[in-house]
Design a protein around this nucleic acid. Structure first.
Lengths: 246, 246
DNA sequence: ACACGTTCTACCATTGAATGGAAGGTATCG
DNA sequence: CGATACCTTCCATTCAATGGTAGAACGTGT
């Protein structure tokens, strides 16, 4: 499956073109895109033009390439997390109003928490969890809440391959965190992501007793209202779970 | 550019596969997908498998096809509307808090308003404008706000091709609406989308004086507080515009 | 328990679509 | 005004993509 001398198929290249955009970058010059995707300029040009004819990309005058509005629309309409987000939104809004803090919703993808929805409140503490952002399992309360409710096999594999780039955390520490989170029914991390913030997250369990998401808040370190936060989160998480089909 | 007997290229087919999912449907059987995309089963199978190897699709056991989490992530991270949404979010939250109503943000795509962000409040009236949803220009306040600030050429072309499927609205009526919206600086529609709701939207203008979005609210028909709503929206829209680079 | 329908998956000889270097066009800069 | 950098088009060559066919794996009704 590779017509090109470099040995990749058209599909490979389409994927690489879409992946070529660095995080947060919405626009790229054709030459740079070709460079990043590792595709000869003329081939990249042809490919981009084809994709933009279908609206998946947007090839502007002067070779400016953006992702297409149509692609954004299609993906968001039919996203695999659509049902989850729809079920969760009302409850997230409740949490935001009652606790007056940042709320976020994450799913586990690989060994990272992928944030699929977020409500932030002006004036509340900084929230690093951007929508479509990722955080490693071991330094996010959402990640810990998710991983602590996975099967023994998944957890074992995760811990086996665990490695902290910064070298500050060992697998044993993470094991301890996970055990604690599993036992308590929620995960918390103080001052890890941001020195002055505190993250708390609880698992969202669907009808088949599978943990499909984590519902979390980020609050100022000063506000130690664990007694108030955790029950509210757990109640909301149960509500979300009840509204999930699978 | 077509190896297939049907005369479409690999790119065409990739696009059709992604487009094959009906609105709101997150999962499709392989056979149905092949059918909808108009691709022979064996070819569809091969294509889907390739895409799922890259994470753009998710081919589950038994031929269940979903859009990939990775695709959602990539598109949302690098979405062309990213800057707009980031600039708008704080202001939308302000509006939501102050007016205590549904807030939404739309861009013009073709002759429809495409809703790119939305904040709904529990207890507030129903809001038809789903994220990544579309509404025709002539029956949405956001659409009217956007179109009324387009160039004469665009408006002329729109009105020329205008046709209401329901036949209730004529081009002249729309022309009147647009003129009114342009003159007033905001667009409003009462009871059109939903009999008991009222939509108001104002244009968001960027540094280059181009109207790039519409900021709107949906309120109960009873609450006729135009005097309070419009200035608040216009202030927020100005704030958003100031924060937009281009 | 059996036969039938349905759907997924794998195979492989044929064929024409995809490839990318080269050349032409256009804008920007010192 | 030459030089550089970028976008765009062209076209002969070649090997990846194609899809009919057949088999495997279910599920379902009799």
């Amino acid at each position: 499956m590779a017509n090109s001398t470099s040995g990749d198929s058209v599909v490979d290249r389409v994927v690489r073109v879409i992946e070529a955009f660095p995080e947060g970058v919405t626009s790229l010059q054709l030459t740079e895109l070709a460079d990043r995707a590792g595709i000869p300029l003329s081939s990249a040009h042809r490919l981009v033009r084809q994709l933009s004819e279908h609206g998946l990309l947007d090839l502007g005058a002067g070779g400016t390439v953006r992702l297409g509005l149509r692609l954004w629309e299609l993906v968001n309409r039919n996203s695999p997390t659509l049902a989850l987000r729809q079920a969760a939104m009302p409850f997230m809004e409740d949490i935001q109003q009652v606790l007056n803090q940042n709320v976020n919703l994450a799913v586990l993808d690989g060994w990272e928490a992928l944030f699929v929805e977020r409500l932030s409140r002006r004036g509340s503490v900084a929230n690093r969890a951007r929508i479509a952002g990722r955080m490693p399992v071991h330094i996010s309360s959402a990640g810990l809440a998710l991983m602590s409710h996975q099967s023994r096999e998944v957890q074992a594999e995760y811990l086996e391959h665990f490695q902290d780039p910064s070298g500050k955390v060992t697998a044993d520490v993470v094991r301890h965190f996970l055990a604690e989170a599993a036992q308590q029914g929620y995960a918390q991390l103080a001052g890890v992501v941001d020195p002055d913030t505190w993250g708390i997250a609880v698992p969202v369990v669907n009808g088949k007793r599978r943990t499909v998401a984590a519902l979390g808040v980020v609050v100022p370190l000063a506000e130690m209202r664990l007694q108030a936060l955790v029950p509210a989160l757990q109640t909301a998480a149960r509500g979300i779970g009840r509204h999930l089909a699978d």
